[in-house]
Amino acid sequence: MSPTTHSQTTSGEDEFVTIIGGDAEEIGQVFRDQGLAAKDFTIVHRIGRHRIAMAPGQDDMSALVGALLGGRLVAATYARRPR
């Protein structure tokens, strides 16, 4: 399972994509499948274990994500700088 979130940006702003999965191999596959390297995305930091902290009132979403991944949460964030 590898849900992906996309930020909407206007011209001149950084854009970020965070890929969440069970391991680095899943994340790398999603990165390749979406052609993110060809779209000038680069990794912000190494792929690793992450903890999701939700804003107040969003506790149900945090529990849902945790349950879906069975406690195996690995994520990587990629960025594209404005051209």
Rank of each mutant, 00 (worst) to 15 (best):
M1A: 11
M1K: 08
M1W: 07
P3Y: 09
P3I: 04
P3D: 08
T4L: 12
H6Q: 10
S7C: 15
Q8A: 14
Q8G: 12
Q8V: 15
T9I: 13
T10S: 13
T10G: 14
S11K: 14
S11Y: 13
S11I: 11
E13D: 11
E13L: 09
D14K: 12
D14Q: 11
D14C: 13
E15I: 06
T18Q: 03
I20C: 01
G21T: 00
G22Y: 06
A24K: 09
E25L: 07
E25D: 12
E26A: 10
I27H: 07
G28E: 07
Q29V: 06
Q29D: 11
Q29Y: 04
F31S: 04
R32H: 13
R32M: 06
D33V: 07
Q34P: 00
G35V: 03
L36Y: 02
L36G: 01
L36P: 01
A37Q: 14
D40C: 13
F41Y: 13
F41I: 06
F41M: 09
F41S: 11
F41W: 09
T42D: 12
T42L: 12
V44H: 10
H45W: 14
R46Y: 14
G48Y: 06
R49Y: 03
R49G: 07
R49F: 08
H50Q: 10
A53M: 05
A53D: 10
M54S: 14
M54E: 09
M54G: 10
A55T: 07
P56D: 04
P56M: 02
P56H: 03
P56G: 05
G57C: 01
G57R: 00
G57S: 04
Q58Y: 00
D59F: 03
D59Y: 01
D60S: 05
A63K: 04
L64E: 10
L64R: 05
L64D: 08
V65I: 13
V65W: 01
V65D: 00
G66A: 06
G66C: 05
G66P: 02
G66H: 05
A67D: 05
L68A: 14
L69N: 00
L69K: 03
G70Y: 05
G71S: 05
G71A: 04
R72H: 15
L73Q: 02
L73E: 04
L73T: 06
L73R: 01
A75M: 06
A76L: 03
T77N: 02
T77P: 01
A79V: 15
A79H: 10
R80C: 11
R81P: 08
R81A: 15
R81M: 12
P82K: 06
R83K: 14
